[in-house]
Design a protein around this nucleic acid. Sequence first.
DNA 1: CGACAGGTTGAGTGAGCTCAAGTCGGGTGG
DNA 2: CCACCCGACTTGAGCTCACTCAACCTGTCG
Lengths: 231, 231
Amino acid sequence: MSAHYAPAHGSRDNLLLLKFRKGEIIYLQGDPATDWFEVVSGTVRTCFLYTDGHRQLTGFHYDGDAFGIDEAFYHSSAEAVTTVTLRRHRNVTKPPVDVDTAPEHGALQRALNSARACIFLLGRRTAAERLAAFLIATSRRTGSDKPLPLPMSRTDIADHLGLTIHTVSRTLSEFVRQNLITFDGPHWIVINDHGALERLASGDGDAAVMSLRRGGASIAPKLELAPQYRS
Amino acid sequence: MSAHYAPAHGSRDNLLLLKFRKGEIIYLQGDPATDWFEVVSGTVRTCFLYTDGHRQLTGFHYDGDAFGIDEAFYHSSAEAVTTVTLRRHRNVTKPPVDVDTAPEHGALQRALNSARACIFLLGRRTAAERLAAFLIATSRRTGSDKPLPLPMSRTDIADHLGLTIHTVSRTLSEFVRQNLITFDGPHWIVINDHGALERLASGDGDAAVMSLRRGGASIAPKLELAPQYRS
DNA sequence: CGACAGGTTGAGTGAGCTCAAGTCGGGTGG
DNA sequence: CCACCCGACTTGAGCTCACTCAACCTGTCG
């Protein structure tokens, strides 16, 4: 679970040139985020792995680009697309940020997390997976068993998930039919089977009767994620 | 183009409570990013508008969430989903950040931009739009007319765009057939018709003969974006 | 030379889109 | 109070783009 360093030309402890060959792993999703990197030459990809094994590449990084800026643990893995040279920077261990002195710093990090949440929603393959992930994520605010308010319109949900209102409506109705959720008007739902929704959200479509799986893109052997990365 | 403030209870100049009614616009994509906000109560949506008018909601923001953290200009609009109360914070005008004193600050911002670029790719509706946007974005590094290296595999591109290698390959072949691009081996392309690709990337599928448009979700009247937001 | 990985292409299928009704509830006016 | 309208949501029927399955090509490596 630790980064596989191949030190090349050292300079200082917190500023080091490293080299990786094509295909080598720079760090793994879930590793402690001890460093961040700057590309000196070559190309790097960052990959988020879903529990069903399919990948969402979150970016390609070229000369001058930075990657690996994360709190505590890496959100995604980084791998060398070509032979690459990187400059390593020690990640400043951040104490709980004082909101008054540097409010936009913590806020930036939150904005980044929010953007990533959006990517992980859109990285899902089917309408059922996206909606399940959306409901799970939304329910995290209130608690699993309580009625969950959905103040936004179906159009809003559709535009968030990259679907149409028709597909959103149909899929939610299907959830009701399968007793995964119950409606109390269009804007209040109760989650009946949190586990099934979570399995759906992970792309583990076999869990549900719906058989709505579509994907097949580069399925890797299953990888268990640390809890903090479950979407 | 300016934010439509409806001041409620003032406290200080840089820390102010504001109220918006359901549906009201808090700020518009492209406005100067003078403030960022914290939700006190209610729900806010942030929307990125494509030039063809379709929306990508980049997030819903609830009690305690922050939004509107941007450099110079807002990337997306913010609108009240319900009646909301917000706490406004003045955006610190950032001088070009000194990399040595606060390297992870500028890096955080770059990571955020990179994540957003990923969202905007995934927000596109068809395979042709996504690939066109990907090629345009990639070509921005080298320059339009030079041969463009694609060091990554088709699988990487597919996993980046949420497609399969088959669709990637087919769509690129279609681009070649339409003389939008030319291949020089699988990993070097030349862009022949940058304009057509850009129109495709904007979701303006009518521009191309391909007629691959799918979307229809919440088409708004066309809105011209400031140049810095063209994907 | 064969094995293999990466890429292209064809045929068929199905998830999600389009088009089109139909339902429900809230607001407005006669 | 009811008639009407309007917007939001739901549902059905059919179509199509992207996926699946499968073959084939090309270049590289042992």
